[in-house]
Structures are given as C-alpha cells and as structure tokens.
C-alpha cells in the first residue's frame, strides 16, 4: 500500500464517524456562544473593576473555566454558568484588591493617615446637568457611578437582568440564590438607581 492510498483511507476515516462531526459542531456552537457574550461580559466586568486589563483577564479566566468544566453541558446552560463564573472571578478580584488596599493603606498610614482617596469622590458630579446635555457616554458614566454605589448583590442582579437580559431563573442560577432574592435585589437596585439618577432617563415611575 502506497502513501497515497493511506492518505485516501485517512480522509475517509476522518469523514466517517458522526461523533467527530458532532464534536466539531459543538465546538463551533461554543465559539459562537463566546463571541456573543464576550463584549457584554467585558463591559460588565469593566464597570465593576474599573480597569480594562483586569476586566479582560477576568473575562478570559471565565471563558477558560467554562471551556474546561462546562463545555459539554447543554448549550442553554452555558449563559447562566458563564455569568456565575464571571461573578465569582469578579468577587475574587475584589477580595484580592481589598487585601492589597489594606496592606498598602497600612504602610501609608504609617506616614500619613489623611492620604486615602475615594475614587468615587474624584468622579465629577454631573447629576445636576439637564438630561439633554448628557451625551450617551456621559450618561453611561453616570449610570456606572450610581451602580458602583449599590451593594454587590444589587449590582449583580441589575446587570444580569437589565444589561444581559437573563430571566429571573437564569439570574438566580448565575448568582447562586433564590428567584425571590433576585426579584428583591433587582427591585431595590432599580429603585435606588432611579432616585440617584432622577431626570436622567425620563424620570418616570
């Protein structure tokens, strides 16, 4: 048997098993899923961690974890699973940041205890501007500023429900809590944001 015959057989072998086609299709579907959520996931992570590189790292970690652990699950489960991983990664990042900040502040306090800066205070207050003067970008900054003031669970509920469009059950799965908790967190978040951003988005009740 010559090599050309062997190659012909190899091609036939590669084309034969249906399971290989299924695997390929599954991989393509997984790729399409990631392409569909990556930009939104980045924006959500970016809103919380306030740094592009950190947000990109978090999204990449979440993608890798989903690929390693859950890619074989049914496609309809990917979204809540992905956002659950993303939320966990964000929470881990925030914990590490707090520890780092505590250590840094401990050293800083030895020289000057008055130097602590709240990043939120450095954001210019545009809430007083009439809504028509707020560009889309400025309005988004206002929204991010208001979101940053919310408790973490309310932030999560609002972003997953409102930004990502998950339903109550999917949000509960992503947050690891009951549907009732999701409704409560989301309702409180909307109420607080609406008060915080009065006149910003129509201002209706």
């Amino acid at each position: 048997m010559r090599l050309t015959d062997t190659l012909t057989l190899a091609v036939r072998w590669d084309e034969a098993p249906a399971s290989k086609e299924h695997t390929l299709e599954h991989s393509l579907e997984f790729g399409r899923f990631l392409a569909g959520v990556e930009k939104r996931a980045f924006r959500i992570a970016r809103i919380i961690v306030r740094n592009d590189d950190d947000a990109l790292d978090i999204v990449q970690d979440a993608m890798l974890q989903l690929a390693r652990s859950y890619a074989d699950r049914p496609a309809e489960e990917w979204r809540p699973l992905f956002y659950r991983i993303l939320q966990n990664r964000i929470r881990d990042f925030q914990r590490r940041s707090k520890v780092r900040a505590r250590i840094l502040s401990w050293f800083a306090s030895a020289s000057d205890e008055e130097d602590e800066i709240d990043p939120l205070q450095s954001v210019p207050d545009r809430a007083a501007l009439p809504p028509e003067q707020l560009s889309t970008e400025q309005a988004m900054q206002e929204l991010e500023r208001a979101l940053a003031k919310l408790p973490a669970r309310q932030q999560q509920a609002f972003m997953l429900r409102n930004f990502e469009g998950l339903d109550v059950a999917q949000t509960a799965a992503a947050m690891g809590c009951t549907e009732g908790s999701v409704k409560t967190h989301y309702s409180r978040a909307v109420h607080t944001l609406r008060e915080e951003l009065a006149g910003f988005a129509g201002g209706e009740q």
Binding site: S27, A35, E38, M63, A67, R68, A71
Partner: peptide
Amino acid sequence: LNQARQAALAEL
C-alpha cells in the same frame, strides 16, 4: 477578547 476566545477554544 477575540484572542481570549481562541484560547478558550484551544483549551476545549
């Protein structure tokens, strides 16, 4: 983000 997605697919 595209690179991150490719890395995840390679992992898969």
